[in-house]
């Protein structure tokens, strides 16, 4: 028994969502992580805590507030409506926004650890050789933090693939638009289609295992601890 057409649509949508979210998260996460790694500001604590919130909160909390925020009377909904975009719940863009919030800590924390591991020394040397702040970031920090970027990308991607509660709350289960693999599995189970649920669930387990294996393999090679969650 192979995957049904609906299953394949869900798998492709999930991969597309995870790729988009990962790229956006690296762009958003890198400056935040850089700032967190270098700053002595009093805001460091509160901002770190804010970013880490999705690690602790149940996805239903995030999903519920997103549903209210994206709705016609919510702050995000009012902005998108005034821009002529309508409301974003039940759309692919809405899922991207939700996933960015949800997966942010999984990208920021490995990047921050990688930036912190560089230390001040290489950056000071670069400064004495006449490199400006931007040059130091792009020519020294970014290349040295490469393993951190790999871990961040893999974790951000994997975590978005594994997302369920938020999608359930703001998705609306539209094939090819918001019906991702985790929702499809849930539907299979609810509809008592246990064989189909089994297939997709097994695929998820194998995928997640391989992802984590690659991260830990890399960590061993680089002799640096980048992934710290619960380890």
């Amino acid at each position: 028994m192979g995957f049904s057409e609906a299953d394949v649509t869900a798998i492709l949508l999930t991969l597309r969502l995870a790729t988009t979210v990962t790229l956006l998260l690296l762009l958003i996460g890198a400056p935040i992580a850089w700032w967190l790694a270098r700053t002595d500001s009093r805001l460091k604590g509160p901002i770190s805590a804010l970013i880490a919130l999705p690690l602790v909160l149940p996805p239903t909390v995030l999903g519920f507030y997103l549903l209210l925020a994206l709705g016609p009377n919510g702050p995000i909904g009012q902005i998108t409506q005034s821009l002529g975009l309508g409301t974003l719940a039940f759309s692919y863009s809405g899922l991207v926004i939700g996933s960015i919030f949800y997966s942010l800590p999984f990208v920021v924390q490995p990047l921050q650890n990688a930036f912190e591991a560089i230390g001040d020394r290489p950056l000071e040397v670069a400064a004495t050789l006449g490199a400006g702040p931007l040059d130091r970031f792009f020519s020294v920090a970014l290349p040295m933090a490469r393993p951190g970027f790999f871990t961040a990308a893999v974790l951000g991607f994997a975590h978005t693939v594994g997302e369920f509660g938020v999608v359930l709350m703001i998705g609306g289960n539209i094939p090819g638009e918001t019906r991702v693999v985790s929702v499809q599995i849930y539907d299979h189970v609810e509809a008592l289609a246990y064989d189909q649920a089994n297939q997709l669930a097994l695929l998820m387990i194998v995928f997640s295992f391989l992802v984590l294996l690659s991260v830990y393999g890399l960590q061993k090679k680089s002799h640096r601890q980048i992934l710290r969650f619960g380890l």
Binding site: L67, G71, A89, F90, G172, N173, D187
Partner: peptide, 18 residues
Amino acid sequence: VRGENISQTFQFVSTGNA
């Protein structure tokens, strides 16, 4: 758009998202 059950369907409408 589809809610997983009638409660979620109600939630979609009562928040004005649908």
